[in-house]
Design a protein around this nucleic acid. Structure first.
Length: 213
DNA sequence: TTATAGATTGCCT
DNA sequence: GGCAATCTATAAT
């Protein structure tokens, strides 16, 4: 990791989820797992606004499940969906105001083989490490990237992502994305037309059939 | 107490 | 392209 890397602070998340979702593109999501370090570059996010967003988990008010979204910024909100998958979000806006950003896809950067193993994908040698379609299966989708990084509700929900000692953090290593595309969000039925999904244009690790841009 | 939909994925045809 | 897997929250009995 370059010398000028910095963990994002709570101030970064203390603003409109649309701004946070856009600004997160190109940052690194880093997991410290014992002696190993797993990292992926964020290439796809979705903004979930508070009270005015029918598709947001916070839309119906505060419950035990979604309380993190109503708390201070920079906290991990992890939920279990369809009986199969975990999805990772980060809370935005000040304590008392709901809002968050869903992480949807990563480009694997470090610990690629361990992430593949967590996904049940076999990687054998340099040949596979260059196999784009194989690498794509590791973390191109919210459930996939959570599995690759070992994210679960039990382990990570409520975790402060802005603490330097956290085993799950978001790091700015100076990388800047070239172009950002904005589209409607994926897999929702309410407020489905709103352009609140942000992707790195042309990046092959974005979820879905083909790259955007 | 029972039913249903859900911020998904992988396997089937 | 269709659909099952399988947990959770919430709505409907």
């Amino acid at each position: 990791m370059p010398a000028l890397s910095a963990t994002l602070t709570s101030a970064f998340f203390d603003r409109d989820p649309r701004k946070v979702a856009r600004a997160l593109l190109g940052k690194l999501l880093v997991r410290k797992d014992g002696r190993s370090r797993l990292a992926g570059r964020i290439v796809e996010t979705e903004a979930y606004l508070g009270a005015d967003d029918a598709a947001a988990h916070s839309a119906a008010g505060k419950t035990a499940r979604n309380s993190v979204l109503f708390g201070p910024p920079g906290i991990a909100y992890v939920y279990f969906i369809y009986g199969n998958h975990y999805c990772l979000n980060v809370s935005c806006l000040p304590d008392g105001v709901a809002g968050g950003v869903l992480f949807r896809a990563l480009e694997p950067v470090a610990g690629v083989e361990q992430m593949a193993e967590a996904r049940g994908i076999e990687i054998h040698g340099l040949e596979d490490l260059k196999n784009a379609s194989l690498l794509r299966q590791i973390s191109s989708g919210p459930g996939r990237m959570s599995e690759a990084l070992g994210v679960t509700r039990e382990r990570d929900n409520g975790k402060n992502l802005t603490s330097p000692r956290s085993d799950l953090r978001i790091v700015d290593d100076g990388f800047r994305v070239r172009k950002i595309a904005v589209t409607p969000r994926i897999g929702i039925t309410k407020a489905a037309a709103d352009p609140l999904r942000f992707v790195v244009a042309g990046n092959p690790f974005v979820s879905g059939r083909r790259p955007i841009g």
